[in-house]
């Protein structure tokens, strides 16, 4: 059966070529400051949007302002610095949110109003100007 032999050869060839291919593209999720996020990592990976939205409802509708699940604190810890040493905005594919949100094609509207970069703390000199 020459047909079967050719198929076997093609199979072996493909098997040999396989490891040469590039590895699976997976996002490199940047590490935040500190040892641990406000919830455990697996929980944050799947449910961070619920926490942020719940926090929004508490803050906006009930006037309860806490820091635990606040978007501002997320940005504070997870800011990624660009080539110029300054934190990048959500427009950059390196931004903590963008890394996964681009990968999974999930668009977010948080940053139409909120700042995607941590607030720059002004030094004494600049304040005095």
């Amino acid at each position: 059966m020459p047909g079967v032999r050719i198929m076997m050869r093609v199979a072996v060839l493909l098997f040999l070529v396989t490891p040469v291919w590039a590895g699976t593209p997976v996002p490199e999720i940047p590490k935040g400051k500190g040892q641990q996020c406000v919830e455990d990592t697996a929980m944050m990976r799947t449910n961070h949007m619920e926490f942020i939205l719940h926090q929004r409802d508490d803050t906006m509708h009930r006037g309860i302002r806490t820091k635990k699940h606040s978007l501002k604190e997320c940005i504070e810890c997870h800011a990624v610095k660009g080539d110029d040493g300054m934190p990048v905005s959500v427009e950059s594919p390196k931004h903590f949110c963008s890394v996964c949100h681009r990968y999974a094609a999930v668009s977010i509207d948080c940053f139409q109003c909120h700042n995607s970069k941590p607030e720059i703390k002004l030094t004494g000199d600049r304040n005095g100007q």
Binding site: T18, W21, A22, G23, T24, P25, V26, P27, I29, A42, R45, T46, N47, M49, E50, C100, Y103, A104, V106
Partner: peptide, 26 residues
């Protein structure tokens, strides 16, 4: 009940690249 869709995409792409990635066990 949300699942880790980033890890899921890693698993699906892993199948296509013949470079298997873990499947989230939700």
């Amino acid at each position: 009940d949300h699942t880790d869709i980033v890890a899921l995409k890693g698993f699906m792409l892993g199948l296509m690249y013949f470079d298997w990635q873990p499947l989230p066990g939700n």
